[in-house]
């Protein structure tokens, strides 16, 4: 259907008056704006000293959650490594020594260099065992160092538990006990 003549709105460029044509008032206005900014509070964050206040749904380094007994909550179901689009999660399952679950991860390695931090692993996890934290400044001097094994991922939990930022996406305690029972 063609556009109706009545619906067409013609816009004419504004005609410049004498003051607009001299450009000096416009320049003065621009200068007053920029000078006003000189005295405004600064927004710079002095990074290493000042840490950014990240939003609660920030997707940073992974952690493996512990249950109330200090064990990894993971039951080695392979849902996360199946969901992972970057294939960066490597799990070796073994029969569980505890009566409350069938399997546990004998080895759980995440290649943090391959990970794209999409958060699909934590969505896939049926027992809230893997979560993304707000830690973003992970560095290493070798590739091997960036392969985070089970111990390292559990230690991330110990560092970030109780910060208050995690967990936010998982339904804490819906299928198994909450990730951070004390919080």
């Amino acid at each position: 259907m063609p556009i109706l003549e009545t619906e067409v709105r013609w816009v004419k460029p504004p005609t410049l008056g004498l003051l607009d044509r001299l450009y000096l008032p416009a320049i003065a206005e621009g200068l007053s704006t920029t000078i006003k900014h000189v005295f405004q509070p600064k927004v710079t964050q002095q990074f290493p000293e000042e840490r950014p206040d990240l939003p609660a749904n920030y997707r940073g380094l992974h952690r493996l959650n512990r249950d109330a007994d200090g064990r990894a909550k993971c039951v080695a179901c392979f849902m996360c490594s199946t969901a992972c689009p970057a294939h960066c999660i490597d799990i070796v399952a073994a029969p569980s020594p505890w009566p409350d679950r069938e399997k546990y991860p004998e080895m759980f390695v995440i290649d943090e260099l391959r990970c794209i931090y999409c958060g699909m692993c934590e969505q896939a996890c049926p027992c809230d065992a893997i979560e993304l934290t707000s830690m973003f400044d992970l560095t290493g001097v070798s590739r091997a160092e960036m392969m985070f094994d089970k111990e390292k991922l559990l230690s991330v939990f110990d560092q970030t538990a109780g910060v208050g930022k995690d967990p936010v996406r998982t339904k804490a305690g819906a299928l198994s006990c909450a990730s951070e029972p004390n919080v």
Partner: peptide
């Protein structure tokens, strides 16, 4: 410095 101040930086 002036550039930074005008852009609310340090």
């Amino acid at each position: 410095k002036i550039c930074a101040f005008m852009q609310n930086r340090i």
